[in-house]
Simulated scan of single mutants.
Amino acid sequence: MSLPMIRAFLLTVTIIFCAFISLIAMGLIIDRFHLAKRLPAKMPGHAAILDVAGAFSIYARDWKAVVAAILISMPLNAFIFGTAIFAAFAFVGNPGAAAMTSVIPIVNTISSLPISLAGIGVREGLFSVMLNSLYGTPVDLAVLISIAGFALSVGWGLIGGIIYMTYKPADGGSVSIGEMEAQVGAVGHQIEADEDASSDRA
């Protein structure tokens, strides 16, 4: 029974991945041919598609920043894996780093769906099924590993949140969350204005 469930998990991840790639491709086409204003407002996913198209406009203008972001994301993703792996190492009889690395992408992808608050419960169920079926890890140990990894993520997230809330620029001034949101909104309006200008020229 567990193996069919794992196949279902893999199918779910594949569907999510294909949907994500389709959204990116659609956003790229819309940005390339300036089709944003021609999309029907009632189109499913209208806002998300426009957001992706707007993001591509920014990426095209500053590809160096995109490359830098990709490079920065690599160690950050390694930290995500490391959190779960070191949480597993805290328990005797853990399945090992290779086993954890093989299941973490599937667990994180499915638990990110809006099924429960922060994936609580879903994450534990996925870890228990996959680690037990594939590597013979006891169900209770798999659940403990999941809870420990989540607790570590929450703990470090709280620390990061405190740093974020108390952040001050190097010039000694202060930046509120409202000001940050205003700056993001200004960038969005600028993108829309540029899109309108490009459409008029076309």
Rank of each mutant, 00 (worst) to 15 (best):
A68G: 03
F127I: 07
H46C: 14
Y59T: 05
L23S: 07
A25V: 01
R61W: 04
K168W: 08
E181Y: 11
F91M: 02
A118S: 12
N94F: 06
I110K: 04
P95Y: 14
A87W: 00
Y135E: 00
V122N: 06
L134N: 00
G96W: 12
R7E: 01
A99K: 13
E179D: 12
V143T: 01
A193M: 07
P95L: 13
S22H: 02
A55V: 09
S153L: 00
V103L: 11
I80K: 07
R201N: 13
I106F: 14
I85N: 03
A90P: 02
D196T: 11
P95Q: 08
L50D: 10
D200E: 15
L10D: 11
I29Y: 07
N77Q: 04
I72T: 11
S128T: 09
G161A: 03
I30C: 13
L141Y: 01
Y59L: 02
M26W: 02
V143D: 00
E192C: 05
G172L: 10
S176N: 09
L3V: 08
V143G: 00
G93R: 09
E192G: 07
A65L: 06
A193G: 10
M26G: 07
R38G: 06
H189W: 11
C18T: 12
M180V: 12
P44W: 12
L131E: 03
V143N: 01
Y164M: 05
Y167K: 10
H46K: 15
V122G: 10
L126E: 05
S112N: 15
A90Q: 00
K37S: 12
G161P: 01
G54L: 01
P4A: 05
I147L: 15
A182Y: 08
G157R: 01
A68M: 08
P44A: 10
I80S: 11
L76S: 09
L131T: 03
D196C: 07
A55F: 01
V184N: 12
S73I: 05
F127S: 06
Y164N: 06
V154N: 03
I85T: 07
M130Y: 04
W156D: 01
F56G: 05
S116G: 08
M43D: 06
G96D: 11
I16A: 06
S199H: 08
I58A: 05
P40W: 15
L3E: 10
V143F: 03
G82P: 08
F17T: 15
S112R: 15
